[in-house]
Design a protein around this nucleic acid. Sequence first.
DNA 1: CACCGCCATGTTTACGTAAACATAGCCACC
DNA 2: GGTGGCTATGTTTACGTAAACATGGCGGTG
Lengths: 329, 329
Amino acid sequence: MADVARLAGVSSQTVSRVSTGHPGVVESTRQVVLDAMRELGYRPNSAARALKLGEFRTIGVILFTLATTGNSRTVEAIATQAALEGYAITLIPVAAPTQDGVLGAFTRLGELAVDGVIVIMEVHLLDATDLTLPPGMPVVVVDSDAGDRYPVVDTDQADGARQAVRHLLALGHRTVRHVGGPAESFSAERRAQAWRAVLADAGRPVPPVERGDWSAASGYRAGRRLAADPSCTAVFVANDQMALGVLRALHEHGRRVPGQVSVVGFDDIPDAASYLPPLTTVHQDFAEVGRRCVHGLLDQIRGERGTPGTELVPTVLIHRSSTAAPASP
Amino acid sequence: MADVARLAGVSSQTVSRVSTGHPGVVESTRQVVLDAMRELGYRPNSAARALKLGEFRTIGVILFTLATTGNSRTVEAIATQAALEGYAITLIPVAAPTQDGVLGAFTRLGELAVDGVIVIMEVHLLDATDLTLPPGMPVVVVDSDAGDRYPVVDTDQADGARQAVRHLLALGHRTVRHVGGPAESFSAERRAQAWRAVLADAGRPVPPVERGDWSAASGYRAGRRLAADPSCTAVFVANDQMALGVLRALHEHGRRVPGQVSVVGFDDIPDAASYLPPLTTVHQDFAEVGRRCVHGLLDQIRGERGTPGTELVPTVLIHRSSTAAPASP
DNA sequence: CACCGCCATGTTTACGTAAACATAGCCACC
DNA sequence: GGTGGCTATGTTTACGTAAACATGGCGGTG
């Protein structure tokens, strides 16, 4: 910067004013400075700027994995929205979903140059780790029930599940089986609870839950158990990838979908429209989740305290070809 | 830091030594300092540290989208490896795959606190934008043919495609159709070229290419055209998601897989094992790609110049149930 | 016992920037 | 024409850290 100032014949403060776009620099001076910058290939040192300003214009995102469609799409939406607001995104992967892993991530976070954090993680793991966020660090949590302590943004899991189950009951199915996500998952638990509640409200029997780990392979294993049960005519699967596995298992056992068994998924990943048959599923608006996370966090960064509470993003049931009325017995 | 030093009754330099883990601090002093840090909730200011050290310990990743499996898995591998090396990852999304979008990303990059950049992008777009990386900024490029100018890390696209096509020919198919990715994609082009070369070498007819945009929906459209052609007995699809669409199209047209038509994909995404039928596909080692990117970049950051040239990560053909010998006529 | 050298710690300084304050020149108005 | 205020620019300072250099005390060795 000093070099630029010398070459342009002005003070470094004037260079600073030009570089930050401050007003009060006359056009002719501005041009001289810009020319000097170009000639010397000057670019501002963001570390010095951050040190001076006390802010990094960067948001940290803590997560376990990008492998699930939901996470990677949420992160993409966050990154896009943050860029729009002039913020960069720093990814903080948690090596393993263990206490040590989480603790490591938060330790790194302490030294990291971020103004706030978005946590995409089951909150019970946060609790188990009794980690302390650096005091005063703004946070927004996704996919969690921490609404009593942190601001939370989440898809309306319960309502999505209700739509799915009600749709199947409305088609005439006596009851609905459920392939859930891992028991530790908050989203999985929310979807399972809503499924159970709708059945109970309708006075229907509540069959046992099959569990998977979100992967198609685990869905396949659950699907094999369901396929062996002739009384099973309708299945609500907690995500699309497991639904893919369920479809395959049903197919291999000669159970036609939707002729003999109806299947509903959750997420509406782009591939779901190309499954065999195209999957009826609950659409999640990941982009909106990302957008609200960033807004919520920036409000905290710029304004005062974040108010705990959960902000729900609505879902829509997408009707495709994997559901139908049960075959008349 | 000064507060910690005062409370611990030492100089700030000693606090610095403790916080950076430098040797030459006696254990008793170290404990006193650590206690003081804890009591005051001290955490080092990374901006000041970066300013002093002249490095950010951060890697920038420039990409268009996380929506494709390949990108998100590569990014995840990069993030994991970088964390292992003590580096953070900053995501720089390119708003739109246009010149303006790319230019915007690189402008932001100029002001960003990164020690090097990994570009996951078709290089022809870089060229079209005549952008200049800040001079001296270390770069590694993925998924590109820029090997003459930058260090490139990439999956061995050509060899993967060769394995796929040769497998189909070895099964006895007279020729192999191809559903390629978008013409602008370097990976897509490489896979198509290898497909063409294997057929030509074997003296087989080279049928016209069908094109998609990597999505299952586009694969479905291509698949409908193929299904209508009774002479088509084997298809090499440029990625698994499009293969999913092809499978659906073939199924809807009553063409059995692999009985009447064999299909091979590319990527080996986790879901591919659960397709109907489970997909034979070329396995890409995204984790290895990510690892080599980070190493290549850190070599540049720590050492001297990056040597242009392409580093290829091998692929493996995974045999599943979507390929078989052609039905005897 | 004196001197040397080493180890633990302290002091000084600079990294690049922007806010706060200072100054000088100009114009308008009475 | 003098005074007041405004605008464009310059000067000073501090942000928090770690490298470089300085100091002092202690043990070992001749």
